[in-house]
Lab assay of single mutants.
Amino acid sequence: HSLRVHINGKDFEVHNADEHVIRALEELIRRGADADELKEFLERWKG
């Protein structure tokens, strides 16, 4: 899957995101994670 996440006016393109990554991202958003947390998660995932 390809996923586009809009954080703090920046678009993050997440390519080849598997279900696990997408679910983790949705969980963060549901918990009310702020932009920094989401960005950190995506950067860690992209490795």
Rank of each mutant, 00 (worst) to 15 (best):
R30H: 12
G9H: 01
I7V: 09
A33G: 07
L28P: 00
W45C: 03
L25G: 00
R4Y: 11
A24N: 07
A35Q: 09
R23T: 09
E43F: 06
N8G: 10
V21Q: 06
R31Q: 14
R4M: 14
H15F: 10
D18G: 07
V21A: 10
E43K: 08
D34T: 13
N16D: 12
D34C: 04
E37M: 09
I29G: 02
E26I: 12
A35T: 13
H6L: 04
E40I: 11
K10W: 04
E27N: 09
W45M: 05
R31D: 13
R31L: 14
D18K: 06
D18Q: 10
A17L: 09
V5F: 11
H1T: 15
L28H: 03
E13P: 03
R44K: 15
L28W: 06
S2K: 05
I7M: 04
N8M: 07
I29P: 00
A17V: 14
A17E: 10
R23A: 10
H15I: 12
I29E: 02
S2A: 03
S2I: 14
L25R: 00
H20Q: 12
H6C: 04
K39C: 07
H20F: 13
A17Q: 07
H15A: 07
L3Y: 13
E19K: 11
D18W: 03
W45P: 02
E40Y: 06
E37G: 05
D11M: 13
L25Y: 05
K10I: 13
V5H: 02
F41T: 05
R4Q: 15
A24H: 11
V14Q: 01
N8Y: 06
L38G: 00
I29V: 10
R30D: 11
E27H: 07
V21E: 04
E37R: 07
L25N: 00
R30S: 13
R44T: 15
H20A: 13
I22R: 05
K39E: 15
R30E: 09
K46P: 15
E40S: 12
E26S: 08
R44H: 15
L38P: 00
A17I: 10
L38W: 05
G47R: 02
N8P: 01
D11Y: 14
D11V: 15
E40K: 13
N16Y: 08
K46V: 15
F41Y: 06
E40W: 05
I22V: 10
R31A: 13
D11W: 14
A35F: 14
F12P: 00
E19D: 09
N16L: 06
G9E: 02
R23W: 10
K39R: 12
H20M: 10
G9N: 02
N8D: 12
A24G: 10
L3G: 03
E40F: 06
G47H: 10
H6A: 05
R23H: 13
K39H: 15
E26H: 09
R30G: 10
G32R: 03
V14P: 01
W45K: 01
F41R: 02
D36S: 11
L28F: 06
K46Q: 15
E40M: 07
H6N: 14
E43C: 03
E43R: 09
A33T: 08
F12S: 01
V14M: 06
H1P: 09
F12R: 00
N8R: 02
E13G: 02
L38Y: 04
L38A: 02
E13N: 04
E19Q: 13
R4T: 15
S2V: 14
N16F: 11
D36V: 09
R31N: 13
K46L: 15
I22W: 05
L42H: 03
R30Y: 10
A33P: 04
I7P: 00
G47S: 08
W45Y: 14
I29K: 02
W45D: 06
H15D: 07
H6E: 12
L25W: 08
A24T: 09
L25V: 07
E26C: 07
A24L: 11
D36N: 10
N8C: 13
R31K: 14
E37N: 05
G47K: 03
K10Q: 14
L25H: 01
D34L: 08
A35H: 13
A17H: 04
G32T: 02
A35C: 05
D34V: 05
R4W: 11
E26D: 08
L42W: 11
E43P: 00
A33V: 10
H15S: 10
G47V: 11
I7K: 00
F41W: 10
L28Q: 05
H20R: 12
R4P: 05
V21H: 04
H15P: 06
G47E: 15
V14T: 02
L3P: 01
A17C: 02
V14R: 00
K39Y: 15
A35G: 08
A17P: 08
D11T: 15
K39D: 11
H15T: 11
D36Q: 10
E43G: 04
L42R: 01
K39P: 01
G9D: 03
L3H: 11
R44S: 15
A24E: 14
D36M: 09
R31F: 10
S2H: 09
K10R: 12
E19F: 05
